[in-house]
Design a protein around this nucleic acid. Structure first.
Length: 581
RNA sequence: GCGGGCGUAAUUCAGUGGUAGAAUGCUAGCUUCCCAAGCUGGACGUCGCCGGUUCGAAUCCGGUCGCCCGCUCCA
């Protein structure tokens, strides 16, 4: 037998009831998984450890101060405008085009087809529609695309290679790997037309732009040269890859009541920002946390539960004064890494990785991925992203909802108002103070977002825990969970099924299960029962033996060292409590 | 979505056209005072699903679903 560690782990998870394939008896469903009796305990323990350590009892802040944290639990389906504001409606629905020959795939909106047009027409384009800067609004974007499409009739497509020979008056200004689009109309002066074909593999500023006009432009895809080979006739029709799960609210399925299952829990926090401030007397800095399901229609779920279409997030949005935001960013980045280490993830396998500038989302000032080296990959994979999101989200929601998302710093105003010569902030505003001065008191908070994957961490814990070792010529498979996370905390075992041992063991079991998830087992030889508990990752086994009958003590076996100590029955609860911390 | 591989018991696998197997696990009883021991029994598979070829299909063919690997994707 030569199975990889990952194969053996997957097998154990199925066999012992950690993880099952969703709806397995019907052939499963790609990208969906169920947690079995042991898995659900493990995942609950993980979520509860997170809530306890981040929300109820977070460690002190960078200056030793108490951290203020509260939770919310938001609906999965929200007003669809939320997802317009967050950018998911525009950014998450990506039609893709394949190059049939080279098997390359790219987002349709990364195929830029700029068509010939007279210079005067170019100059007549709205400012935002000219190359180089993103259109200011969705509307102008649409207009721009339509305009391009309507001029297709008079267009001529360039060949792939820059400098390729074209008809008089045409030239190629860029190739696929060019950077920055030519935005200087003067340079077009000596040419009647400018023709350009571009494929931009990097994150495009014009996301969705051309996609919105695909009926017009994509009708001519067959004539377009492939950005990879320059060959015509190898591009497929764009196919929609809608990464948001869509549904309908109400019984009538019409365009007006389309809604989405949330692709992240974060937006529920942002839209409730003012509610929490108003209802809970929260003062900056403070955080709002949420644990919950999120849904993404991944193109290709892979690697066991790692990339699932339904998954659970543990997210914090930490709101702070912009002036202090970098301090808090560093605080959360370090704290989140330390948390994983604390729960038994070896630092060798844990890689914090600062994202490069070119990787960052356009709104992010900095992002650190906390990555884990899973056995299924040679590259570390993301467990959590700690992102400095600036004021982006609250500003977006302020713009789209028309609601004020600013925070008023009463303490700062109380401190300074005498110097400002008035008690009323509103009165002071009438004196037309400088913007920077106003923003000392009233501003949109910056946000630090530690966003962790509950299922990903559960998988990391499983991978990290799996171990095989040789004991007296036999292979022992043991899940070395941190005791806080272990699904079963202790097993209670009568050494043999006679002399009243089962009765004593049952009584111990009934007492302990009020406080811990414990397991009673009297089936088979005790060695076999120990091994069964090793596979379940149970840190302690309590065994009732002959001596128990004499002195009311039992043995307590340590999963990792196999050492046994004697403990009085009446002290079991406190001993366990200590050892399980 | 593409290419390749695979799908038989709870698990890991054997079985290439003729009555579905092994090991482990599970289970009942005996034994057993400490690490998958032993003995004697037992249960468990419409061979992923649908269709076709054939007298006859786990086996051949087509489709489909799922899993794995590589691309691709992962605001």
């Amino acid at each position: 037998m030569d199975m990889s560690k990952m194969d053996k782990l997957v097998s154990l998870c199925k066999r012992r009831g950690f993880i099952f394939q969703s709806s397995e008896i019907y052939g499963g469903l790609n990208g969906f998984w169920d947690y079995g009796p042991l898995g659900v305990e493990l995942k609950r323990n993980i979520k509860e450890a997170w809530w306890q350590d981040m929300v109820r009892n977070p460690p002190p802040g960078p200056d030793g101060q108490e951290i203020s944290m509260v939770g919310v639990d938001c609906s999965i389906i929200m007003n669809p405008k939320v997802w317009v504001a967050s950018g998911h409606v525009g950014g998450f629905a990506d039609p893709m085009i394949d190059d049939k020959e080279t098997k390359q795939r790219f987002r349709a909106d990364q195929l830029h087809v700029l068509v010939a047009m007279p210079l005067s027409d170019y100059q007549a384009l709205p400012e935002g529609a000219r190359h180089g800067s993103p259109p200011q609004s969705y509307g102008s974007l649409l207009d721009h695309c339509k305009f391009l499409a309507s001029s297709l009739e008079s267009s001529q497509y360039c060949e792939w290679t820059p400098g390729a020979k074209l008809a008089d008056g045409f030239r190629v200004v860029k190739n696929s790997h060019g950077t920055g689009m030519r935005n200087d109309p003067e340079s077009f002066g000596s040419y009647k037309f400018v023709v350009e074909l571009e494929h931009r593999p990097s994150k495009a500023v014009w996301r969705g732009a051309v996609a919105t006009a695909h009926e017009d432009i994509y009708a001519r895809l067959a004539e377009l040269p492939s950005p990879f080979s320059g060959k015509r006739g190898v591009l497929t029709e764009p196919r929609a890859f809608n990464l948001m799960f869509q549904t309908y609210v109400g019984a009538v399925q019409s365009e007006e009541n389309v809604a989405y299952l949330r692709p992240e829990t974060a937006q529920g926090i942002f839209v409730n920002f003012q509610n929490v401030v108003d209802s809970s007397r929260m003062k900056l800095p403070f955080g709002i946390a949420q644990v919950g399901k999120a849904f993404r229609n991944e193109i290709n779920p892979r690697n066991y539960t790692f990339r699932s279409r339904e998954f659970e997030q543990m997210e914090i949005e930490f709101f702070c004064n912009p002036a202090e935001s970098m301090k808090w960013y560093q605080y959360w980045r370090d704290l989140r890494k330390a948390w994983y280490t604390q729960l038994g993830i070896k630092s060798d396998n844990l890689r914090p990785r600062e994202q490069g500038k070119e990787e960052l989302a356009h709104y992010s000032i900095g992002t650190t991925d906390i990555e884990y080296l899973f056995p299924f990959s040679e590259e570390p994979q993301e467990l959590e992203g700690v992102a400095h999101r600036g004021a982006y989200d609250l500003t977006q929601h302020a713009t789209h909802s028309g609601k004020d998302m600013r925070y008023f710093d009463e303490e700062a105003w109380e401190r300074d108002k005498a110097a400002r010569g008035t008690n009323s902030f509103k009165e002071w505003l009438k004196t037309n103070p400088a913007k920077e001065e106003i923003e000392k008191y009233s501003f949109v908070p910056h946000v630090i977002e530690p966003s962790a994957g509950a299922d990903r961490f559960t998988l990391a814990v499983l991978c990290e825990a799996y171990a095989e070792e040789e004991v007296k010529g036999d292979v022992r498979t043991v899940m070395r969970f941190h005791p806080r996370l272990a699904p079963i905390k202790a097993a209670i075992l009568p050494l043999v099924n006679k002399e009243g041992m089962p009765d004593i063991a049952q009584k111990i079991y009934r007492d302990l299960k009020k406080s811990f998830n414990v397991f009673y087992d009297d089936k088979g030889a005790v060695g076999r029962r120990y091994r069964r508990m090793d596979e379940a990752g149970t840190p302690y086994c309590l065994t009732v033996d002959g001596q128990t009958l004499q002195d009311q003590t039992v043995t307590i076996r340590d999963r990792d060292t196999l050492q046994q100590d004697r403990v009085a029955i009446k002290e079991l609860e406190s001993v366990l409590r200590t050892r399980l911390q």
